[in-house]
Computed example of a mutant assay.
Amino acid sequence: MLPLLDDIRLIAFDLDGTLIDSVPDLAAAVDAMLEDMACPPAGEAKVRDWVGNGSHLLVSRALADARGGEPDGQTLARAHAHFLSHYRAAPCARTRVFPGVREALEGLSARGLVLALITNKPAAFIDPILEALALRDYFQLTLGGDSLPEKKPHPAPLLHLATHFDIAPQHCLMVGDSRHDIEAGKRAGFRTLAVPYGYNHGEPVATSAPDGLVESLQELV
């Protein structure tokens, strides 16, 4: 096990870009939403740089790119409803688990560590995706972007986890692929670990100065 895990009792994982590559399904839903809004498709490459801050901001970024300006509230609400409808219909058609993830979750669970999930994805999508990918049983608690009043990079979801399991933040680790994961971890007093293969708005996640970085989560075990 990595030295970074010394005295760690709880590990919180991000989902999209850390455990799973969900962009193909997200991009399909975004493009379907854009078609509903009489806009040209965005494509996977653009969507890959837009994910990570929740579905409202994803839809807002897509509309702003297609229309050349920020959408008003009514337009955003209508587009967001279209997006959720399309994504709900097929949230896991082409989504895949990154290499090394299953091995890491299996090994960490076997060592008795508490594993949790903190994502900015709406909570309603978490269990269907985890069940479809046979990952649900690894996590003792999952939090979505709408589970609490605040979401990452705010530290509140992480501190909620620590309080829920009665584990001090210094014995907790946040694992993610973006600057928002690292910022949330630091603000909560967690140790932080990053993976470089995910979605970080086109920036190297190393620039956020995580406590550690691994090419594959399998390095955790």
Rank of each mutant, 00 (worst) to 15 (best):
L10Y: 08
I11A: 08
I11W: 05
A12W: 05
A12R: 07
F13L: 04
F13R: 08
F13G: 08
D14A: 04
D16M: 00
D16Q: 00
D21V: 00
S22F: 00
D31I: 02
E35R: 09
C39T: 04
A45L: 01
A45V: 01
K46L: 03
K46P: 02
V47H: 01
D49H: 04
W50P: 05
V51N: 00
V51P: 00
G52H: 06
G54R: 13
V59C: 08
S60V: 09
D65V: 03
G68P: 05
E70D: 08
G73R: 11
L76Q: 07
A77N: 12
A79K: 10
A89N: 09
A90C: 14
R94K: 01
T95P: 00
F98M: 02
F98C: 00
G100Q: 12
G100Y: 06
L105S: 15
L108W: 04
L113Y: 07
A116M: 12
N120Q: 11
K121W: 15
P122L: 08
A124H: 13
F125N: 07
I126M: 03
I129K: 03
R136F: 03
D137I: 01
D137G: 05
Y138L: 02
F139G: 05
L141E: 15
L141H: 10
G144E: 15
E150V: 11
P153K: 07
H154I: 11
C172S: 09
L173V: 05
D177V: 00
D177W: 01
R179T: 04
H180D: 07
I182W: 06
R187M: 13
A188K: 15
A188I: 15
A188N: 13
F190M: 13
L193I: 10
A194V: 05
A194M: 04
V195L: 09
V195C: 03
V195E: 06
Y197A: 00
Y197H: 03
E203N: 02
A206V: 12
L213M: 06
E215D: 13
S216W: 11
L217C: 13
L217N: 07
Q218I: 09
E219K: 14
L220F: 08
